[in-house]
Amino acid sequence: MIGNFLRKKKTQTQVLVGMKEKQIQYEALVSAYHKDMYRYAYWLTHDQHIAEDIVQETFLRAWKSLDSLLDANAAKSWLITILRRENARRFERKQFDMTEYEEHNIHDDNADTEQNVEQQLLQRKIANLPVEYREPLLLQVVVGFSGDEIAKQLELNKNTVMTRLFRARNMLKEALDSGNSERSANG
């Protein structure tokens, strides 16, 4: 029995060492990806607090199944998968009213320079893009996915993804162009 006990203690030490490695791996993962994950969540939800919640839930789930992450290169898409599922779960839990995008959520420091006016217009337009156009754009710009990776993540074919990216930017460009011409006309 004592032998058993000692043997158990030995494996426990190994477990502790394993735990420490896991902890280090986890903290590296958080450090590397929490900003991208937050921004992605923010542009999905339009709400700072909901986005933070989703990101925290995402990483907590990631911790629980960290052992299943074998390839460090796959970490990002693995996290995005968890995050998207977490966001979907939010809708299952209650009939969620889609939070209206509010400008003051975002930096509002020196509000009136022309650059800021343009940026705010752009942010509003991005927030109002239909989600099927917004999400591929976020995956490309915020997360840095290639067309193929986006297609895989969203389970779409690549042509569909490229068309949606084209339309998303087209809408934003038109909005900016008309915004600029309005300002020139007024100005």
Binding site: R39, I106, H107
Partner: peptide, 15 residues
Amino acid sequence: KIEQALDVPVSEGLQ
């Protein structure tokens, strides 16, 4: 411009 627009600040305490 799109990159800048999407680059919202992340709360420092989040990590």
